[in-house]
Design a protein around this nucleic acid. Structure first.
Lengths: 171, 171
DNA sequence: TATTGTTATACTCTATAACTATA
DNA sequence: TATAGTTATAGAGTATAACAATA
């Protein structure tokens, strides 16, 4: 099974995962205290707000991950709250174009400062400017690398051979 | 609401969160394909395996986060699978001492290589040795900082004033 | 036939509150 | 009274499979 990770890699990996977990947890609480958004919902809105405002479901899924059904579910919730709208794409009738509404933008604007404050307090407080530069550079590359990786959430269906149940019953 | 994060901070934060999310997702799939462990369960076992093998529930919760009930639930599942045992602590009759079993250790050993392989492929592949050193240093500090932060999962009960429902019904 | 998206369904995870027992 | 942990319960998130519609 190849050789194990260098100890430094293992340590780094665990530190990263624990930090991300703690940060996500904190962010989630902040979001809920200030809105009715889950972290995923916020990410979807933020993504829409940052990218011209409209994307297809598939584009939207990218990076935020999830099964399609999960995305459909979340998009449905956001739509029900009037934060986005969904309409068939003019280019491709199969595609659904998700558009952020003014209310959606407003909500992002309202929630973002507190969100940011959490990130600053938990993540950036102990970091120097130099650290920040390194971290930004590194994580940017890592993210791009991961995005380029084959098993993207959206592609899941294609690459799922019809194997039998490999996880029969568990309990 | 203070000033916004520097753009570089915002970019870094999002890159970190997305990467962590993608990585966690990949890791979770790997774990399930090779065992019946969720990521949390794996983390609990790994934590036990790395720390002499026995911890109280409260110690165990630290870093893996969760409500106590969630931890009780997960510990119960692990116990049912024979991966850990639970017994009252001799020092403090209130405390429950969780101990990893041989089967638990064996499972960690069996699953770890694949787990590691995912981390290497997704996280470390695009990084130089220098990057790794920086990242390890940075995330180690971040994690320590976050751990030191007040709202640790376990302490939740203490710091929860009996406020009324602030999230009445949502949908 | 391949792809986009939705629906139905089932299950897991997590949190809250109430409770027991020990310090 | 405060702390450690469990139980009951309820709700949200996610995934799988089956399905409809368009390319």
């Amino acid at each position: 099974m190849a050789d194990a990770l260098e100890p430094e890699q293992l340590t780094t990996y665990f530190a990263l995962m624990e930090s991300a977990s703690l940060l996500q947890h904190a962010v989630e609480q902040q979001l809920r205290s200030q809105s009715d958004l889950s972290h995923v919902q916020f990410q979807l809105l933020a993504k829409l707000a940052g990218t011209e405002g409209r994307m297809t479901m598939t584009e939207l899924a990218d990076g935020v991950v999830y099964s399609r059904s999960g995305l459909t579910h979340q998009a449905g919730l956001l739509e029900k709250e009037g934060l986005v709208t969904r309409a068939p794409s003019p280019d491709d009738q199969r595609a659904t174009l998700v558009t952020i509404t003014d209310a959606g933008r407003a909500l992002v604007g309202r929630v973002l400062p507190g969100h940011i404050e959490v990130a600053r307090r938990l993540l950036f407080e102990p970091l120097s400017d130099d650290d920040l530069r390194h971290l930004g550079d590194i994580m940017g590359r890592v993210r791009d690398h991961m995005r380029a990786q084959p098993p993207r959430s959206t592609a899941a269906r294609r690459r799922r051979p019809p194997r039998a149940k490999e996880r029969p019953a568990k309990g």
